[in-house]
Design a protein around this nucleic acid. Structure first.
Lengths: 116, 116
DNA sequence: CAGGATCCCCTCCGATACTG
DNA sequence: CAGTATCGGAGGGGATCCTG
């Protein structure tokens, strides 16, 4: 079994358009991260992704499925989502993107209207 | 001086939505690559980016400028665009994204409607 | 040469409401 | 629980035409 997802595993600032690096759409990168530790149910995914509506999460999951990154599995009335090998291979680039963004966050903030 | 940009430096398939990794918008990754070897004029950029219209290229460049990745410079009537240090630091992630996409191209194609 | 103006289409995102 | 239906708004992308 896998432990429950941490409701605060993502920065409030994480679903942000300040990073120029994107994975598919606004939520897909985070969804893949949520699946890193094992398969998850729809409602489990919604916990850390506080502001996502069911419709949007569904669309992202369908797109990830269509592209072979995530597998939807329905077994005896239960649904869950799991990473495929292809999806798992994206974890490296996602880590790299997070590292780049973290390393250059201040510069990104400065550029986008020099607050701070 | 820098040599002219190769009109075929990008695959016809390169501006594709098959790769899940994106840099800002459809063209920004390629624009940054074009600027790798030195500053370029607006019309120079249009050569390898065959299908981009002036309006769209302008919008991408403005966004890159706003985010501190590209600098627009107008000197005695001439305009050119150059990478900032921040923009240059994105070349690594862009290379990694291209490598990932190339390595998994077949799987991406297979997933998105199993042609081939 | 380096764009801007206009028009249209499509996708993404979100809110709200509803369902097997 | 795991979605679907509907609506609306924002932005990206492209085509075409026009301009200082």
């Amino acid at each position: 079994m896998t432990a429950p997802l941490d409701p605060d595993m993502f920065d409030p600032v994480c679903p942000s358009d300040l990073s120029p690096i994107r994975f598919r759409d606004k939520w897909s990168g985070m969804i893949i991260r949520c699946l890193q530790g094992g398969p998850r149910r729809f409602s489990e995914l919604r916990v850390p992704l506080h502001r996502v509506t069911a419709k949007v999460l569904t669309r992202s999951l369908r797109a990830l499925e269509r592209d072979g990154l995530v597998a939807r599995r329905a077994r005896d009335g239960r649904v869950d989502y799991a990473l495929t090998d292809l999806g798992r291979s994206l974890l490296g680039p996602i880590d790299a993107a997070c590292a780049w963004t973290a390393a250059h966050w201040d510069e990104l903030l400065d550029a986008r209207e020099g607050v701070r």
